[in-house]
Design a protein around this nucleic acid. Structure first.
Length: 278
DNA sequence: CGGTTACCCTGGATGC
DNA sequence: TGCATCCAGGGTAACC
């Protein structure tokens, strides 16, 4: 589920509990989710390792262990998340970090098990894997980089924005918000955007993502929660996602919910008047 | 190569 | 109540 703002909120949430602290034990509860080494090896590597860094790369959570213990990358994907309080559904705990500190347990849960936990032997290997599948971070991508990357594809702008190799961090919710704020129809061809549209798009991306980070992400149903089990507040202030039939905040036209080319099953919300196709 | 689809999983909501 | 169906914020292997 989580996109850039949710992953950033997770990282900020677990950092005080993990960074510069000694990992007493990693407890793997679902070995099927571990990649890069055997579950036993991950537990062995984590024993008494110091966590030197807790960082976000795109939608990845990157835990850097001191010395030669390696890097642990956690990809929450659709339903993964961290808890600093005992989770609602203990049956979905996949891995637990036990640390020396005031918050001695950090739980990683993933209902649908679509997430990944990957061990890399060193920072270079992790960085290489990231670079092979990701473009620049959505919060900091420059206008020229964005324009250049969009100019090289004939796909629609929405699936292109959601392509992590083009720009890292945007998913289905924030793509709709960004395109509404930039007044761009989601099916416009990425390479065909005008200069003014690119300007609006490049401004909208960090603006929306930062507002969502400030609100601690977007929660609905039983999905994403903060590390304290609380709902993120962004869907109380967003414009499009989940608002089918409700008035567009720009012009009061009812918001459309539809499916578009290039995105298999996912819904797209947009305003037919503020985001004209032609 | 660029672009599209199937599929990985599970649980909650909805419909009959 | 019970059962079937659909839906979900991600990502990638396999395919055309």
């Amino acid at each position: 589920m989580p996109e850039l703002p949710e992953v950033e909120t997770m990282v900020r949430g677990i950092r005080p509990a993990l960074e510069d602290r000694v990992l007493r034990r990693i407890e793997v509860l679902d070995a099927r989710m571990i990649q890069g080494c055997e579950a036993e090896e991950l537990e062995r590597r984590g024993r008494d390792a110091t966590v030197a860094g807790v960082d976000r790369r795109g939608k990845w959570v990157v835990l850097t262990l001191a010395g030669t213990a390696g890097i642990i990358v956690i990809q929450p994907r659709m339903t993964g998340g961290f808890w600093l309080v005992p989770p609602d559904r203990p049956q979905h705990i996949r891995l637990t970090f036990h640390v020396d500190g005031p918050l001695p347990t950090i739980w990683f849960c993933d209902t649908r098990r679509l997430g990944k936990i990957i061990w890399f032997p060193n920072a270079e290997a992790a960085a290489q894997a990231f670079a092979a599948s990701h473009g620049p971070d959505a919060l900091t991508i420059s206008r020229s980089e964005l324009a250049d990357r969009l100019s090289r594809t004939g796909r629609g702008i929405k699936p292109t924005l959601m392509d992590q190799k083009i720009v890292a961090g945007i998913g289905n919710i924030y793509a709709d918000e960004v395109l509404f704020q930039a007044r761009i129809h989601p099916e416009r061809i990425a390479s065909g955007l005008k200069k003014a549209e690119l300007d609006r798009l490049h401004r909208a991306i960090p603006r929306i993502l930062q507002a969502a980070i400030d609100a601690e992400g977007s929660s609905f149903d039983a999905g994403y929660r903060t590390v304290l089990g609380l709902e993120g507040g962004f869907l109380d202030q967003n414009s499009m996602y989940g608002r089918a039939g409700k008035p567009c905040p720009g012009c009061s036209t009812p918001i459309q919910k539809t499916k578009i080319a290039g995105l298999i099953g996912r819904p797209t919300y947009y305003c037919v008047k503020c985001q004209p196709k032609g």
